[in-house]
Amino acid sequence: MNYKNITVAGSGVLGSQIAYQTAFKGFNVSIYDINNDALARAKERIINLKIRYQKDLGATVEEVNAAYDRITFICDLSEAVAEADLVIEAIPEIVQIKTDFYKKLCEVAPDKTIFTTNSSTFLPSQFAEATGRPEKFLALHFANEIWKNNTAEIMKHSRTDMHVFDEVIEFAKAIGMVALPLYKEQPGYILNSLLVPFLEAAQMLLLNEIADVETIDKTWMIATGSPKGPFKTLDIVGVNTAYNIALGKAEAGVTEFDRLAEFLKSEYLDKGKLGRQTGEGFYSYQDVMKHKKLGVSLAMS
């Protein structure tokens, strides 16, 4: 495995985490997103990650700054992938957006470049043809708060070259992950095969007015000893991700998910309640956001 230059496409919550973790482990990283506004938000996220790495991992100021300095922020796709050994796609969970992205990517990426998707719900075979290099394409899926929840699920499809599969497993280990190989395609991999139905069950309880957010979370936490309930988990994942999953199932004709998608849109997305990242989702995090802004100011001073 001779990867040195990594491009992360998509600079949202998890995309930013993937990029920073990869840079923290010594790789050169290009973050690609569609415009400078998106990249500005990514820079703010990564500055906050510097603080988390110091707090959670005991990293030094020198280490977190060196990691940040290994990252470039680019909104031109051809420039972002010009030297890429590996691309990790972490763009929204919408089939057409991903398909269009891969069609553009295959036109500008070098022949050597391996493509991976961090998709939580789709199978790599759904996009293999669009990549133009199905043998060099597979899934590389991370959990949120990657520096602590350091799993990487590596899932091949039927046409993935086994040498490429093995290389990506080694790359996952090189960035500090516990590599979890999946030899057959499975919607939701291992983690989301367990997690998504759990989170959807909680959302349906809320949608159908069985109980409120706090009661549902409290039930789970007390009964199982879990440190957080499904809605606190959803706020970390991001309400927009939950919405995209619900919308996809609604469009596929799965009963009740059209109601869930509309509920999430009207009650949360349209009101700017996207989760912890925006200071409010199913819960309010205004105090947390004030602390983060103070931390950013201190980090930049």
Results as ranks from 00 to 15, higher is better:
2 N>P: 06
8 V>N: 01
13 V>L: 13
14 L>A: 08
14 L>I: 15
15 G>Y: 00
18 I>H: 02
24 F>M: 04
28 N>K: 13
33 D>A: 13
44 E>N: 06
46 I>K: 00
56 D>H: 14
65 N>P: 01
67 A>S: 05
67 A>T: 07
70 R>W: 05
78 S>D: 12
79 E>T: 14
84 A>H: 06
89 E>A: 05
90 A>M: 09
91 I>M: 05
92 P>K: 10
97 I>A: 11
112 K>D: 10
113 T>S: 07
116 T>Q: 05
127 F>Y: 10
128 A>D: 13
139 A>K: 06
141 H>M: 01
142 F>L: 02
146 I>N: 01
147 W>T: 04
147 W>L: 03
148 K>H: 04
152 A>D: 00
159 R>G: 00
172 A>H: 02
176 G>A: 07
178 V>A: 09
183 Y>V: 12
183 Y>E: 13
185 E>I: 05
187 P>V: 15
188 G>E: 10
197 P>S: 09
204 M>W: 01
207 L>Q: 04
213 V>T: 14
217 D>K: 10
233 T>Y: 02
234 L>T: 08
246 A>K: 00
248 G>E: 01
250 A>R: 12
253 G>E: 08
254 V>W: 12
255 T>R: 08
262 E>Y: 13
264 L>D: 12
264 L>I: 15
265 K>Q: 12
267 E>G: 07
267 E>S: 11
268 Y>E: 01
271 K>T: 08
282 F>Y: 14
287 D>E: 12
292 K>I: 15
295 G>K: 11
